[in-house]
Write a protein that binds this DNA or RNA. Structure first.
Lengths: 236, 236
DNA sequence: ACAATAGTGTCTGTTAGACACTATGCC
DNA sequence: GGCATAGTGTCTAACAGACACTATTGT
């Protein structure tokens, strides 16, 4: 139940849990899947000077909900405006942050390379594969792992990677992004079929010529911004 | 980033967001998927006297993490001990609870019918289909919808419904649970094949006789307590 | 024997992978 | 023309749906 007898006591005598939002911001930097990191600059705080996922406390007066917080964090810490943004998982517990019991609502965001911010003193991109083997502050490595797993999973049955593409792109380019994320080669023929079935691409009419036969260019169909699940078990 | 300049001010001057856990507790009552509801009994609180999903505030000294909170809530409000429990989504915002900005970490739990608690004055089961059309307090209807969607989705590619079964069960019983959840008939032949591929069932040797040819009984294979995703897009 | 449910064999339409083939540019 | 990349036609093996068939009980 939302209320219970312990609540008043909790709020009065004991420290309340901290509520924050962290964001796994992903893009492709020259074909490689990378995550955005920000520099922890506050002194007297844990992990001062370390690089970690962009995050911040919920500001109840400012943010209508946690997705708002995620957007604000991305804007302030990474200079990213309106990416694809989806809630991923909430990490909780007494042990994950030395400042006390905390809950971090984790989102992941996808931005196309041409919108991705430049690296600076307080922000940089790092290949996701490298980061997953390294140790990030707090439980940020777990967050990254879950995000990559989710992106890979969705990539295998949806058109999610389109959110990593520029406005217009060729099928080859899209396929190579899929290959990069999934970590293997894809059959061009099967790939085309899948894209057609999903019915999410729209020809622009233009073509892109790069040294050989020009490739048709596509964009995301206006309405169709999301998924499509696999076949149903149901008969008829 | 975990810390930011606004944080001290937030914690001092302004009310912190409330952090709570709600649980969508599901079971089968005579073959029908039902959710557990508890009665809101505190006076002076919103929705006094209404039936809603079991939930409660996080108790930082008591709960190691939010999953602990969920277990405690289930124990205290529904008398359920160790069900299948999985984090679902976190609902947040200024509008969802009249007491102020709040975050509710939502879990869903599956219990087999023989372990499901009896209805009482403060707890009862209600068919999930009915509830989805009714209006529950707060955003509990949304929570329920997301839970059902998740259970249906996982049912279509995993062995999740086994967590709704008794220790030992027949394939027909399991199939009819799948049918109940998915809302349609399944081909017995295809169903057997799927279960074999997933390799999650173990014959007990016993049979169950109910008026006709006895059916073999199965249990969940000791280790294999979870999923199996669909086919990969990868070549070789 | 017959009814009813459990469980298997097997045909077939569909589909994903494989790959040959055509199309169209640049040099 | 030759080469490289774009894109299509089409064969085939694997598989899921469909359903006939066998198996095993109670009455």
């Amino acid at each position: 139940m939302i209320n219970d007898s312990g609540q008043g006591k909790e709020q009065g005598d004991r420290p309340l849990p901290l509520l924050m939002v962290d964001v796994v911001l992903l893009t492709l930097v020259s074909g490689q899947l990378c995550a955005g990191l920000t520099l922890r600059s506050q002194e007297n705080e844990p992990y001062f000077g370390a690089w970690c996922l962009p995050g911040g406390y919920v500001h109840p007066q400012e943010d209508m909900d946690a997705q708002d917080t995620a957007r604000r964090v991305l804007r302030d810490k990474a200079g990213v405006s309106s990416p694809y943004l989806e809630q991923l998982i909430t990490m909780t517990g007494a042990a994950r942050d030395p400042r006390g019991w905390s809950a971090s609502i984790v989102y992941y965001a996808l931005v196309p390379e041409h919108i991705a911010p430049q690296s600076s003193e307080r922000f940089r991109w790092e290949p996701a594969d490298d980061l997953m083997r390294r140790t990030l502050p707090f439980d940020h490595t777990s967050m990254l792992r879950v995000a990559i797993e989710r992106v890979r999973s969705k990539t295998s049955y949806s058109a999610l990677p389109i959110h990593l593409m520029p406005e217009e792109f060729t099928l080859s380019q899209l396929r190579s992004v899929y290959e990069q994320i999934l970590g293997g080669k894809l059959e061009p023929r099967s790939f085309v079929r899948r894209m057609q079935e999903m019915d999410v691409l729209q020809e622009t009419g233009k073509t892109r010529t790069e040294a050989h036969r020009p490739a048709r260019m596509y964009r995301l169909k206006s309405d169709r911004s999301m998924a499509l699940l696999g076949p149903s078990l149901l008969i008829k």
